[in-house]
Design a protein around this nucleic acid. Structure first.
Length: 451
DNA sequence: GCATGCCACGATTAATGG
DNA sequence: CCATTAATCGTGGCATGC
């Protein structure tokens, strides 16, 4: 269980200068901010060097690192020689961070785009870099290599050539083909968020990633939240829990000493979700995309634009109520951790949760794919969203008819949810109801595909 | 020059024990 | 309730091979 207060305290401690770099290696002089880093350094750098046999615990750790470290000494050891000091000549256009090589800048761009093109075939978790996927597979799925999740066949990615990785990158999405007039980036981001919507229960209890439910959704949430947070409409909102609440700025997102996204991104996203009327947001998106502002990408390029494209590609038969329905929002980031009315993960459902069932719906939703402009045979995550119109007609009545599974035992997963989700849960009833209203059509859709 | 992959490190989160 | 630990992911540096 996670204790927010405890976390806040710890966060404060770690961010205070006095407590930073308290772990000093007496052998090489390196300093570490965290005990974990210091211990890893000890195991990796000095355990083998001393010639002593690796401790039991260190053996497994070294195995995780791929064996004993045999890399040459770091460059710092040559600082007293004539080796010229390298300079970071290549800077990122979006955040002013500087890098040694151009390649690093390109790789860094993933931070801004939020793209996660590398899909784990075992648990549908997505990564922005191939080596991350490789690492994930080695660490999380090394033992279940022959245990393919049933969800895998439904994942619209290329067959992994290495049998270990699914490459989503550059994979022509079935949606992309129908959105030829749309710029590439929004489509990619939209598709990304759809993937992120995969509920990712660990295929094997005790294996895989325990946080798979929401891990992949964070960057997308950031995109959405960032875009929406830029709108003055939300300033009157109070964050549920925002220990690191900071004003948004592109620079603030990436502290030079930090490599992770601040939690406030998620909080902001959740707030925005509850407060933004879709038509308004649509207007914002339209203005944003039309103006071609350089801020576009910073403001969550893909997601906000993805909403536009999602709307634009829809059939003219879509009613105004339909357009005002938030099912047109890119809800992918939410689907990873919001309860909806999804059946709790169980062994009966099998591995992969919702992903395992993408069979054509037998109800009215089956005809909706044509109205979306999507190919009816298109597999993959978009099938989740095709039949949304079938539920739109419920309109405002759905508001007063809260889905039963939202309450009580259906939230069985809440005990293992991260604190920002729990913070969402703890929001006022009105806000929750609003969230339900926004998300209900999608949840109903998901139910249809699950049963 | 570029792509790939390994590694170190910080951050986050859940689990565990006192 | 609090502190600690373990596991995992995100990011940047950099070696290697083409």
């Amino acid at each position: 269980m996670f204790h927010h207060q405890n976390h806040l305290k710890r966060q404060l401690q770690e961010t205070q200068p006095a407590s930073r770099q308290r772990f000093h290696c007496q052998e090489c002089g390196k300093q570490y901010n965290t005990q974990l880093g210091y211990r890893r350094h000890l195991v990796a750098a000095h355990t083998a060097a001393t010639g002593q046999p690796c401790p039991e615990g260190a053996v497994s750790l070294l195995e995780q690192f791929g064996g004993h470290i045999d890399r040459p000494p770091p460059l710092e050891s040559n600082t007293n020689t004539t080796v010229p000091v390298r300079e970071r000549k290549y800077s990122c256009e979006r955040c002013d961070r500087r890098f040694y090589t151009r390649k690093d800048v390109r790789r860094h761009s993933v931070v801004h785009t939020g793209r996660r093109d590398f899909l784990c075939p075992q648990c549908a978790q997505r990564f922005g870099r191939r080596d991350h996927l490789t690492r994930h597979l080695k660490k999380s799925h090394a033992q279940d290599s022959g245990l393919m999740s049933p969800c895998t066949p439904n994942i619209p990615v290329a067959t992994p050539t290495s049998a270990t990785q699914c490459l989503v990158k550059e994979e022509p999405s079935p949606v992309t083909s129908d959105m030829g007039s749309v710029s590439k980036e929004p489509v990619e981001t939209l598709s990304r968020d759809m993937y992120n919507s995969y509920p990712m229960a660990s295929p094997v209890p005790g294996m895989g990633h325990p946080r798979g439910l929401m891990q992949g959704s964070l960057p997308s949430s950031i995109c959405v939240g960032q875009h929406m947070s830029s709108h003055p409409h939300h300033h009157n909102l109070q964050p549920p829990v925002a220990p690191q609440q900071q004003p948004y700025s592109n620079m603030d997102r990436y502290q030079h000493s930090s490599t992770s996204y601040p939690r406030v991104d998620v909080d902001s996203f959740l707030l925005d979700l509850q407060s933004v009327p879709p038509p308004h947001m649509n207007a914002v998106n339209s203005s944003t995309s039309a103006s071609g502002s350089p801020q576009r990408e910073v403001l969550g390029e893909g997601v906000c634009a993805g909403i536009d494209t999602h709307l634009l590609c829809r059939s003219p038969a879509a009613t105004s109520a339909e357009l005002s329905c938030s099912t047109n929002m890119d809800l992918g980031p939410l689907l990873g951790f919001l309860p909806f009315s999804l059946p709790p993960f169980s062994t009966h459902m099998g591995m992969g949760g919702l992903v395992m069932s993408c069979q054509p719906a037998t109800n009215t939703t089956s005809s909706s794919s044509s109205s979306t402009g999507l190919p009816s045979q298109a597999p993959g995550p978009f099938t989740f969203f095709q039949p949304t119109q079938a539920h739109v007609s419920q309109g405002p009545s759905a508001h007063s008819q809260l889905p039963q599974p939202y309450s009580g035992p259906a939230m069985s997963m809440s005990s293992s949810l991260p604190h920002y989700y729990q913070a969402f849960q703890q929001e006022s009833t009105i806000n929750t109801v609003e969230a339900f209203r926004v998300l209900r059509p999608v949840s109903c859709l998901l139910q249809c595909h699950c049963y």
